[in-house]
């Protein structure tokens, strides 16, 4: 690690530990809220990526990589599979490609829960954004690291 990057501050690292779960939760909130109100996969993904980048600034590159566990490009892959896969269910009910499908789940206590292909698509976007932003951030951090 080069000297100019080595600015570990106690306030930042303590703050980051507290903020990180909050930010991730907030990003999930944005993701789920996105269907009818401002929010959605893209903005949620950006918040999640920012949260992990905060970890990178507060500690170091390696800590952020271990926290993510998988390579960010693999996240992009899963995201793309979900987003592209969301186009397919419509075909099984004989509708045109990419037509939105809705399913209602009746849960005992919580009431009815509406699930849909746009939601799957949005989760795909979320993962895709997290993965691609982190790929860029990690590439730059890695260059600084070596």
């Amino acid at each position: 690690m080069t000297s100019r990057f080595n600015m570990r501050s106690l306030i930042l690292s303590t703050g980051a530990t507290l903020l990180l779960p909050l930010l991730i939760l907030f990003s999930l909130f944005l993701l789920l809220r996105g269907h009818n109100e401002p929010g959605g996969g893209f903005i949620g993904g950006l918040v999640a990526a920012a949260a992990i980048s905060l970890k990178l600034f507060a500690e170091d590159y390696r800590a952020a990589r271990t926290m993510l566990r998988v390579h960010p490009l693999q996240l992009v892959g899963v995201g793309l599979v979900l987003a592209a896969g969301a186009s397919l269910p419509a075909l099984f009910v004989g509708e045109s490609f990419f037509t939105a499908q809705w399913w209602t789940l009746n849960l005992p206590i919580l009431g009815s829960l509406k699930l849909s292909t746009p939601l799957i698509f949005d989760i795909g976007v979320y993962l895709g954004v997290v993965g691609s932003v982190l790929t860029v951030v990690f590439t730059l951090a890695e260059a600084e690291h070596s």
């Binding site: 691609s132 860029v136 730059l140």
Partner: peptide, 10 residues
């Protein structure tokens, strides 16, 4: 542009 920045850095 994020890609372009990484490219130019490299």
């Amino acid at each position: 542009l994020a890609f372009a920045v990484v490219l130019i850095h490299r």
